[in-house]
Design a protein around this nucleic acid. Structure first.
Lengths: 339, 339
DNA sequence: CCTAGCACTGTGGCACCTAGAGTGCCAGTC
DNA sequence: GACTGGCACTCTAGGTGCCACAGTGCTAGG
């Protein structure tokens, strides 16, 4: 009974604070929520909640605001995510269904997320490491330059160029292409290195330099971490929170500009759970300790390929963010799968 | 004589204001510059300059700050752009020379610009409309899907996929590919439409739907404006100017997130002049009227293919921005050309 | 044409005050 | 034993008055 009301109080505090961004006091609380008790009682509960570390008072005569721990409790309490309205679902559907290629899907998704949540949105490209090579092409650009093109089942296309000193021989090229194709078509990226590493041996000594160069580039493409691309959108939404944490915008913007940081944020989440929320200090990244991050995996044919999510101040609207992120992830998964 | 000193005064005001971001008064001016006259004289000159609209006083007892017109005069007065130091040139060189492909060049360039100028940087991908098709490939992804790949001489690769109801015939594909290749290889984009529009006629009726679909996609790719991509970097630098125009960050960020707006900014510049500076209200874009934009074309084999530049507050360091933008543009041109 | 001097005027900072919101605690009530 | 009403206390936001300062415009004189 007692425990139950305290929890209700915490939830009330969080939702009020999220809505108004102002510290909430005992009186306001009983006015706006049907708690059935007097302010004085609430004050006692609040004192207890503060003792336990769920809320804190910015100064003596102000109301209380939730701590990171308080938000955590609040979020954990949300057992099932509120579904979106039919109109919203329809909107998402229509917006995404116009996409023409993978780039377009990613760009549209990030915009969609940013618009719906009024937050900064991040979308990771389908990861290469969990992908398969669908096909490989070798395209001579001119006598001395060759373009390697890896087509990946997630829809991505990776390209690299190779410079070679001797003119490129068409026959050799066709041969190489055929053998590479046999070796790695429809194979997962992880197995590519061992499948092509001794391919070089089966060519004449004179041709080996070129073969070697091509293999090296392929290996680099397959193993390179930097291929994990991320798109960012809605950065202007950060500015709206100016009032709340005024000096903090720059470090956040800086962090967001670092691909590496973003990848870490999206990647850190284990694959076991779909929807993940990290609050304030829960994420170690320098400069993002006063922001919260809501992410979800999305999948292609039910195997997760990457993540997407939103980043906002810790006092963001978790309910809305969580349901939106989850819904968008579902839609993206569906689009990737049945295309 | 009189005119000459007034100009010197204006220049002094601009450079002081740019350095300190504080309104500059007559006394400070004679202290920090060797003008050889007394503050009172300067005051007369300042009054005249204000009359002519080059400077303005925020309030009675403050110093003066340059108007857009004042900056314009100042910039126009910079006849030759100050060259960068050897160390800086070396830095640019090394940073860019590690790039592996076009994407990489663009990303590196934008970071470089942002770092050197401490401003927001924008780089436009080499424009398709001024480019030639180098090669076309048709790659079947599966029985019903076909990927069209246009390799462009600027190093870009454009890809589109086509869905078709009937299984794709290999022979037909080879035929189509060969004819397309003959028709548009090494042709400028602008001539592509007329070159392929009646290609459809030379195929059997049964195959026409596929041919038609492919042609449509190619035409879309060639004519689509949206293919003009832009990369943005250093947005966090905006936050540094917090103090100067505090409320204005959001609209600026919003404007910068609109690809269309950025393209207009970069595109508006005529091709005749290389280095271009637009100050404050000179650019009509909503939300960017208190920013200045320094851009330059860059070229591939001496034909300009796109623009790059930086965006900052009107009170930015024009001298530095201009020389940096110009130098970076030169380096990028060189890299594109001799690769 | 330049300069010195003087009266004038907003701004920013400081000290001060007040109203209001919110708390903690204690004594009383069901 | 849990809840409530009341009271004293504390801190902040915001308003006011005041002063020093920086910078100006103007006028008279070199």
């Amino acid at each position: 009974m007692l425990e139950e009301r305290r929890l209700a109080v915490l939830q009330a505090i969080v939702s009020d604070y999220v809505a108004t961004h102002e510290a909430v006091g005992s009186k306001a609380l009983v006015d706006r929520h049907q708690l059935g008790v007097s302010p004085a009682t609430i004050r006692n509960d609040m004192a207890a909640l503060e003792e336990e570390g769920y809320i804190t008072a910015p100064h003596t005569s102000a109301g209380r605001i939730p701590t990171d721990l308080g938000y955590r409790m609040f979020v954990d309490q949300i057992s099932q995510v509120k579904p979106l309205s039919a109109a919203e679902r329809k909107g998402i559907d229509r917006f995404l269904s116009d996409a023409v290629d993978l780039d377009d899907i990613m760009t549209r998704t990030v915009r969609l997320l940013a618009q719906l949540t009024k937050q900064v949105a991040v979308v990771q490209y389908p990861s290469l490491s969990r992908s398969q090579v669908r096909r490989i092409e070798l395209i001579p650009l001119n006598e001395h330059r060759l373009m390697i093109m890896l087509i990946v089942d997630s829809g991505r296309v990776e390209q690299r160029t190779v410079e070679c000193s001797v003119p490129i021989d068409e026959v050799l090229l066709a041969d190489l292409r055929a053998r590479l194709s046999v070796a790695i078509s429809d194979q997962p990226f992880s197995s590519v290195p061992q499948r092509i590493e001794d391919l070089e041996q089966s060519f004449n000594t004179e041709n080996r330099p070129l073969v070697r160069a091509v293999i090296v580039e392929i290996l680099e493409t397959v193993t390179a971490k930097l291929d994990e691309r991320v798109v960012l959108g809605g950065a202007s939404n950060l500015a709206r929170y100016n009032e709340d944490f005024p000096m903090t915008i720059q470090p956040v913007l800086e962090a967001l500009e670092e691909q590496v940081v973003l990848l870490r944020l999206l990647g850190e989440v284990g694959t076991e759970t779909k929807l993940s929320v990290r609050i304030g200090h829960e994420n170690q990244v320098e400069g993002l300790t006063s922001t919260s991050i809501v992410t979800s995996h999305y999948a292609k044919e039910s195997t997760p390929v990457a993540s997407l999510g939103v980043i906002g101040p810790t006092n963001m609207d978790y309910v809305n963010s969580m349901s939106t992120v989850q819904a968008v992830a579902q839609y993206v998964s569906r689009f990737l799968s049945d295309e």
